[in-house]
Simulated assay, not measured.
Amino acid sequence: MKALTKTDFKFAGQKSVYHGKVRDVYNINDDLMVMVATDRISAFDVVLPKGIPFKGQVLNQIAAKFLDATTDICPNWKLATPDPMVTVGLKCEGFRVEMIIRSILTGSAWREYKNGCRELCGVKLPDGMKENERFPEPIITPTTKADEGHDMNISKEEIIAQGIVSAEDYAIMEDYTRKIFARGQEIAAKRGLILVDTKYEFGKRDGKVYLIDEIHTPDSSRYFYADGYEEKLAKGEPQRQLSKEFVRQWLIEHDFMNEPGQTMPEITDEYAESVSERYIELYEHIVGEKFERENSDEDIAQRIEKNVSEWLAAFKSR
Rank of each mutant, 00 (worst) to 15 (best):
M1K: 12
T7N: 09
D8I: 01
H19R: 09
V22D: 10
Y26W: 06
A43E: 09
L48I: 04
P53E: 10
Q57I: 02
L59V: 02
Q61A: 00
I62Y: 03
L67D: 06
T71P: 03
L79W: 13
V88G: 13
K91Q: 14
E93P: 06
G94Y: 05
I101W: 13
R102M: 04
T106D: 13
G107H: 11
E112A: 09
E112D: 14
G122L: 03
G122W: 08
V123A: 11
K124R: 15
K130R: 15
N132T: 08
F135S: 07
E137V: 11
P138I: 12
I140T: 09
T144K: 11
D147K: 14
G149P: 05
D151W: 02
M152G: 02
N153Q: 15
I154G: 14
E158C: 00
I159E: 15
I160T: 13
A171Q: 15
I172H: 00
T177V: 10
R183E: 14
G184K: 00
Q185T: 00
I187N: 00
A189V: 02
I194S: 00
D219R: 09
E231S: 14
K232I: 10
G236V: 07
Q241C: 13
E245K: 08
L251Q: 05
H254Q: 13
F256R: 06
N258M: 12
E259W: 10
T263Q: 15
M264I: 13
A272N: 08
S274F: 07
V275S: 07
Y279F: 11
E292H: 05
I300W: 12
I304T: 01
K306I: 07
N307W: 04
L312E: 04
A313R: 12
F315S: 11
